[in-house]
């Protein structure tokens, strides 16, 4: 089984790091995968991963053909999840935040991610796990990614499948 992740250019990913962390490929946002930050007022192009907090903008991005969505703050938006199911758009949970924050803030984020994951799976969505790291300090190996996914509520089998199939589809599709 091959595992995939997506990080930002600032991490300086090379083949040696990919091999060491156990990934088949670590995609670079903006190079291998288009990632659009809606909170900064950039419209989503088709096939991109839309990152944002505003429900309306995220729904527009999903209807505009976004291939994945990262919900900043991990709040459950029922209307958005419904739109994602209708448009076969995957939900991605950003793991770098779980590694970055500390103490009670991290615990709250894990709880929100756990609720979001559980709701999205019940709704029938594909849920992937990406680090979307901006520095090497918040990157992780595939083993760590699987364990973090398990903390968020995935079972071992789904965590492995998701990091392989859902993340991989993102890198192939765009």
């Amino acid at each position: 089984m091959h595992f995939y992740d997506v990080v930002f250019d600032s991490c300086g990913v090379d083949a040696e790091l990919e091999r060491k962390l156990g990934f088949q490929k670590i995609g670079v946002a903006g190079v291998d995968v288009a990632v659009v930050d809606l909170d900064k007022g950039r419209g989503a192009a088709g096939g991109a991963v839309a990152v944002g907090r505003d429900r309306g903008e995220l729904i527009s991005a999903v209807k505009g053909g976004a291939s994945g969505v990262v919900i900043n703050g991990s709040e459950i938006e029922k209307e958005l999840i419904k739109a994602m199911v209708d448009n076969a758009c995957a939900l991605f949970i950003q793991l770098s935040d779980v590694m970055h924050y500390f103490g009670i803030r991290r615990s709250r984020l894990i709880y929100r991610d756990w609720k979001l994951f559980s709701y999205a799976r019940k709704a029938g969505l594909d849920v992937g796990f990406l680090t979307l790291a901006r520095s090497r300090a918040v990157m992780c190996s595939y083993m760590q990614m699987i364990e973090l996914a398990k903390i968020i509520g995935a079972d071992e089998r789904y965590a492995r499948e998701s990091i392989s199939r859902v993340n991989g589809a993102l890198l192939v599709r765009t």
Binding site: H100, A137, L148
Partner: peptide, 24 residues
């Protein structure tokens, strides 16, 4: 073992120094 691997991803400081760990 799983808890250890996850915890190692979350530790960013040891003895006050910035550090991060990758489990290989």
């Amino acid at each position: 073992c799983g808890l250890t691997v996850a915890a190692l991803a979350m530790i960013k400081k040891v003895n006050g120094d910035d550090v991060y760990f990758y489990t290989l």
